[in-house]
Design a protein around this nucleic acid. Structure first.
Length: 143
DNA sequence: GCCAACGTTGGC
DNA sequence: GCCAACGTTGGC
């Protein structure tokens, strides 16, 4: 799961302990969010920054929540076509798990994995929520 | 700041 | 349904 560190970083999550992952407005990313289940582990990825990297881990503690920002006219994520009865955007609540003592940079990931193995290293990838195969995730954690 | 790679929008 | 125009993402 990607976040721009100048918007919301792993340090923010460490301080707050838990947060709702709001603001995702891409249907494919939403579909991946909806597949998540309580207890699932996710990588926290810092994007659009000096050294894009996986920086830590978090756990899904609530699944399939309507993203509240879609109902808020003052939010930049407001969606006029969404209603409380028929929400359009769903997300999860996550809990801080750990911050890696050594981050795993995109550069490193590219040397270890192909675009087929790990979508984040695939050229042109822009999805902010991306599935990682169990065995690949295991290998990443051993880096 | 640049630009490739998308996704979305809207005219037709 | 097609596709040009436009907006956004995100690495570099």
């Amino acid at each position: 799961m990607k976040s721009e560190p100048n918007v919301y970083s792993i340090d923010d999550l460490e301080r707050e302990k838990r947060t709702i992952w709001d603001g995702v407005r891409n249907y494919q990313a939403r579909n991946y969010l909806q597949q998540m289940q309580v207890g699932d582990i996710a990588f926290f990825y810092h994007s659009n920054c000096k050294s894009p990297s996986i920086v830590g881990l978090m756990m899904i503690i609530e699944a399939n929540l309507p993203d509240p920002t879609q109902f808020d006219p003052k939010s930049s994520y407001f969606d006029p076509k969404a209603t409380v009865e028929h929400p359009r955007w769903f997300t999860v609540r996550v809990q801080y798990q750990e911050k890696f003592s050594q981050v795993i940079s995109l550069t490193t990931l590219k040397t270890k994995f192909s675009g087929d193995e790990l979508l984040i290293v695939r050229k042109g990838n822009r999805l902010s929520v991306i599935p990682v195969a169990e065995e690949i995730a295991h290998k990443i954690r051993l880096l």
